[in-house]
């Protein structure tokens, strides 16, 4: 979080940093608030048994922490790469599980250890390009033109994340001896367990749907590969872009420049994150948490 403001201080554009910070915070709250509500409401299948579920979904949670605070931490720990848990994510409500997955899939609301705020910069570059083309202005970021080569790198980085997660999940799901042999819950949730494991590796998070029996050579090696790509591609790509931009001539801002520190541009970044990160994963999420949600309610 502090990095965002440090960035604004060093490039002398605090308003730009504030805009990024607001985008991150809105994204964080959009994930955290539903989780708090869903965990505090409890499991409808247990409520049907006629007992008092006013404490919320207590499976896998401690009394001293409570359902609401546990739900809040599920998102804090997944938006940043903490990986620590104070409740078992495997036993959270299906859509809470989806929000945990989304937090790691976007991997840019506040950003995590290691990669930090690099991920949101990829989205900013994409947003500059898309917004620039939409209004017919030259895509520029801080006085530097964004051209085809930078865009190519940005797209590779942005698409590598879904590719390694979904690729790994698809492989594990395709071979029952690796995938479905390890899951501990039947049906849709088993698929969520596999998806969560690869998402957590790619986002360098470390938390898991821990029912998955993942201490086997297949899981250790495949998630290790995903982890390496998930960590180093988002570092190499932006450094390459920075190198390319540094070589370019500085163009002073003019009336033709797209303003990057406005609310409109913030919304644009948000839309790009939703389109790229969320929609790329939507089919997989529909098979896992969303399907489980509708089977439960």
């Amino acid at each position: 979080m502090a990095m965002v403001f440090a960035f604004g201080f060093f490039i002398k554009r605090p308003k730009f940093a504030l805009m990024i910070y607001i985008v991150m915070t809105i994204g964080f709250l959009l994930l955290a608030i539903p989780n708090i509500i869903m965990e505090a409401n409890g499991n409808p299948a247990i409520e049907k048994m006629g007992i008092n579920t006013s404490l919320g979904a207590m499976e896998g949670k401690e009394i001293r922490i409570g359902a609401a605070a546990s739900g809040f931490w599920t998102i804090v720990t997944t938006v940043i790469s903490t990986g620590s848990v104070n409740s078992m994510h495997d036993s959270t409500m299906p859509l809470s599980g989806m929000n945990e997955l989304l937090a790691m899939m976007t991997n840019s609301f506040y950003g995590g250890v290691g990669v930090g705020i690099l991920n949101i910069f990829i989205y900013i570059i994409l947003a500059v390009f898309i917004a620039g083309l939409m209004v017919g202005r030259t895509p520029e970021l801080m006085g530097k033109k964004i051209e085809a080569r930078e865009m190519k790198i940005a797209m590779i980085v942005a698409l590598a994340h879904p590719f390694i997660i979904l690729g790994g999940t698809a492989l594990a799901a395709a071979f029952p001896s690796f995938g479905s042999a390890a899951i501990s819950n039947p049906g849709f949730h088993g698929f969520s367990q596999i998806l969560y494991e690869y998402t957590s590796s790619a986002a360098n998070n470390g938390s898991g749907f821990e029912g998955l029996g993942d201490n086997t050579p297949w899981w250790n090696i495949s998630t290790g590969i995903v982890l390496l790509f998930g960590r180093f591609i988002p570092i190499i790509g932006p450094v390459a872009i920075a190198g390319l931009l540094a070589q370019k001539k500085y163009i002073p801002e003019s009336a033709g420049t797209l303003k990057t520190d406005t609310a409109t541009f913030g919304l644009m970044i948000f839309v790009v994150i939703v389109i790229i990160a969320a929609l790329a994963f939507f089919p997989a999420l529909a098979l896992g948490p969303i399907a489980e949600h509708f089977s439960l309610y």
Binding site: M88, D90, N185, G211
Partner: peptide, 21 residues
């Protein structure tokens, strides 16, 4: 130390909870 890691929709798990009740 560990939790059950059962999903909220797991039929075996719901039967276990019913058994505890």
């Amino acid at each position: 130390s560990a939790g059950s890691n059962k999903s909220p929709s797991n039929a075996d798990y719901l039967a276990e909870v019913q058994g505890r009740i």
